[in-house]
Design a protein around this nucleic acid. Structure first.
Lengths: 226, 226
DNA sequence: CGCATTTTTGATTCTTATCAAGACGAGTGG
DNA sequence: CCACTCGTCTTGATAAGAATCAAAAATGCG
């Protein structure tokens, strides 16, 4: 386990921490704990280099030569990634929080792998319409709903408001949504002022008015946001 | 075969011609010819509703409630689509030219279906970085290279210039690239003026300087385009 | 507490969208 | 054969949304 190995330091956004996971060489160990900011490299061309997220949050991303980054998906507990599901030669994965990974046996979990692949494609298609055809506010609203669903905490709250930890920074959100971090920040504050969401700490978000957020995300006939 | 059935006429961009392909009911016929503008509906929840493009061009697209459209992929000969590969409840397919489709047997072509699914995901990821992080010129350049590869004609040309039929209109290109048709038109003319491409008819494109186009598509250090 | 990072906020610029005519081409019918 | 029409494409003027640039505020960490 080579945590701290320097790799791809050419880009400012790529974290220097880097974990090389080689399921073949790992022997008996099936579980790994990964620290935030770690870039996960799955070695081995074979489909066996595939893991399941037991707990935590991982993002899949791709980069252009000049450093522009696009986050392709944000994965929570239960999601799979690796060679059986994604082309790891083209895209990388990074842990956004302390994350526990479990190496899986692709042959005995054939069905799970296929479902993961389909889910990945389906989410990718949804992401395409978001990137290509939604406005900044619609993008951020869509992202919040998605993350709320994937990372919702057990809420002891009065209403059915969902609260979740935003493992992504504003810059990560921007790279996911095809925006800049300033625009993301402005959208979030606009939502806050409008009472759609609430947050005291910038990474603990509560969705206060899910219906309104859902309308916004779907591109409702525009109503002014303050 | 119900060619001409009215369906989804709510949207102005959706063609009124519509073919409902139901592989189960079709009996022995395996080949279908589809006319340009036809929206292809693959019936049946089962994975069997899957076809291979023998010849022609099909686009996969998705729409927002208010009519905004995002083309997810443009498929040429050899590509598969349908329930085994894409979620047909969420996205539709439309023929962009006379297209011959062949119903395939998903069980006997297990490997081919899996490869098609992987290709679809890979292209979707490339598309995401295009939509989210590339400029208009980079988007159009990338699209031209992709289409040139998929739809290249046998060229008896002197140089290694590739010529291809652009089955997509400017509006289609715009919906694929997350732009407007005017911006697409302006980019194409800018490329023409710069000598990267050539066209007399707006739908027959010749890539004159593929290397330069490739640099542009990859986001080279910006050099002014006239 | 002080430093580094992230986030917020403001002012300004720039890219691309929008709006608005024309131009071109293909097909139609007189 | 030639106006006429329709759809697509081109081109220009203007507007809007988001990016960029810049700096202050908040947060977290050692």
């Amino acid at each position: 386990m080579l945590n701290g190995t320097l790799l791809g330091a050419s880009s400012p956004v790529l974290p220097i921490d880097c974990l090389i996971l080689n399921p073949q060489a790992s022997g008996g160990t099936r579980l790994r704990l990964v620290t935030p900011g770690t870039t996960i490299i799955l070695q081995g061309i074979r489909r066996e280099a595939t893991v399941r997220i037991v707990e935590g949050c991982v993002c899949l991303f791709q980069q252009l030569a000049d450093g522009r980054r696009q986050i392709l998906d944000v994965l929570g507990a239960g999601r799979l990634f690796g060679n059986a599901v994604t082309d790891t030669t083209r895209c990388s994965a990074a842990a956004l929080t302390f994350t526990q990974l479990e190496t899986i046996d692709v042959d005995s979990e054939r069905k799970g792998v296929e479902d993961a692949l389909r889910l990945m494609l389906h989410r990718s298609h949804e992401h395409a319409i978001l990137l290509g055809r939604k406005t900044a506010a619609e993008k951020v609203a869509t992202a919040l709903l998605d993350l709320g669903q994937q990372f919702a905490r057990r809420s002891s709250d009065t209403r059915n408001a969902t609260t979740f930890t935003l493992y992504l920074t504003r810059a990560d959100l921007a790279d996911w949504l095809g925006l800049t971090l300033e625009t993301v920040s402005r959208c979030l504050h606009s939502f806050k002022r409008s009472g759609l969401i609430t947050f005291k700490h910038p990474e603990i978000i509560t969705i206060a008015d899910e219906d309104a957020l859902r309308l916004l995300a779907a591109g409702q006939p525009k109503r002014a946001l303050s």
